[in-house]
Amino acid sequence: MTTLVWDYRQEYEAERDDILEAVDQVFRSGRLVLGECVRQFEEEYAWYHGARHCVSCDNGTNAIVLALRALGIGRGDEVITVSNTAAPTVVAIDQIGARPVFVDIHEDTYLMDTSQVADAITDRTRCLLPVHLYGQCVDMASLRGIAAEHGLPILEDCAQSHGARHHGELAGTMGSAAAFSFYPTKVLGAYGDGGAVITSDDNVAADLRRLRYYGMRERYHVVATPGHNSRLDEVQAEILRRKLTRMDRYIAARRAVARRYADGLGDTGLVLPEIAPGNDHVYYLYVVRHPWRDEILNRLREYDIELNVSYRWPVHTMSGFAHLGYPHDSLPVTEAMADQIFSLPMYPSLSPGVQDKVINAVREVLAGL
């Protein structure tokens, strides 16, 4: 059987009764869209973060789109972010007509190098968008200082960092608003798509609720600018409600998997994840690095181990974003890391036996290089 970088089936077997009960509860309720389950999930997810509001939506990409629009970002504005991210981060910026402006990353953590942000600010900059990548947070202390100096909002991309902390503060609570994805692979994952924005700004929350529902404040009446049809359905909301009570357990299991990798691979030539100062890593992905990455991946297939690269192509190098005009070597660290990084299997239900298979195979491949 092929070993995959992520597999939900063992977790599903353990939680099957609860998941099916959630589905049956919704189907029997008589309300399938924007009902009590959505309301309760939003309330509980906001409470988990100590935020005033959570506004759910249909996916993480639209969470960023809605949040940017609610923060007043639009056509011609510039948003500073990174190219070492999943493409949806930048797709969302592009979708509202704004221009993404990229800064480079740290070689050790692959996170935004906040020392480059101030020099990237222009008179068209309207937002800073840090990506809390792979399960740990950007240096928010320095970024908040820059934002305060220039009067800019911060939108945190927390798609990969549910439950992560930076100097004790939860990811998503250190800016003006934060966007989350509940895609199935996430630390808190649905059984389909889903997303949300949290904020403690009442006006931003009101705009988010309007924008996710066509722009309506009341049924059938669009006010101000038109919005989107971007709603989390009741089934996913109820599943997420139940899984939220187990999220800290999922994080503990991910950290145990990470420790096992560190013990099993720490004496090899593989560069293992480094935790930035003040961070509590939740290991959404376990990203390692080696200069012979592609050879390693090819050889691991002989062991029936199929791994991912997150991300092989930095966004600024993609043909779909050629219009941004970033030349080769414009983000040297991002580009260099993209040639070396890859992800080992990481999910809470990863068994010690399967993980040992991966560790032993990686050790054998490295020894044979």
Rank of each mutant, 00 (worst) to 15 (best):
P273A: 08
P273H: 04
A276C: 12
P277A: 12
G278M: 05
N279A: 08
D280L: 11
H281T: 07
V282I: 11
Y283L: 08
V288Y: 01
V288T: 09
R289Q: 14
H290C: 03
H290F: 07
P291V: 02
P291W: 00
R293W: 05
D294N: 13
I296H: 02
I296K: 01
R299T: 13
L300I: 06
R301L: 13
Y303G: 05
E306I: 15
E306M: 13
N308H: 14
N308M: 15
R312F: 11
R312S: 11
R312I: 12
W313D: 14
P314I: 00
H316C: 07
H316P: 03
S319R: 15
F321R: 01
F321C: 02
F321K: 00
A322F: 06
A322C: 07
G325I: 09
G325F: 07
G325W: 08
Y326F: 12
Y326W: 12
Y326N: 07
P327T: 05
H328C: 14
D329Y: 13
S330T: 10
L331E: 03
P332A: 03
T334G: 02
T334K: 00
E335V: 01
E335F: 01
A336Q: 07
A336T: 07
M337N: 03
A338C: 06
I341W: 00
F342V: 05
F342T: 02
F342I: 08
S343T: 15
S343Y: 05
L344I: 08
L344E: 03
P345Y: 02
M346T: 04
M346H: 05
Y347T: 04
P348C: 12
S349Y: 11
S351E: 10
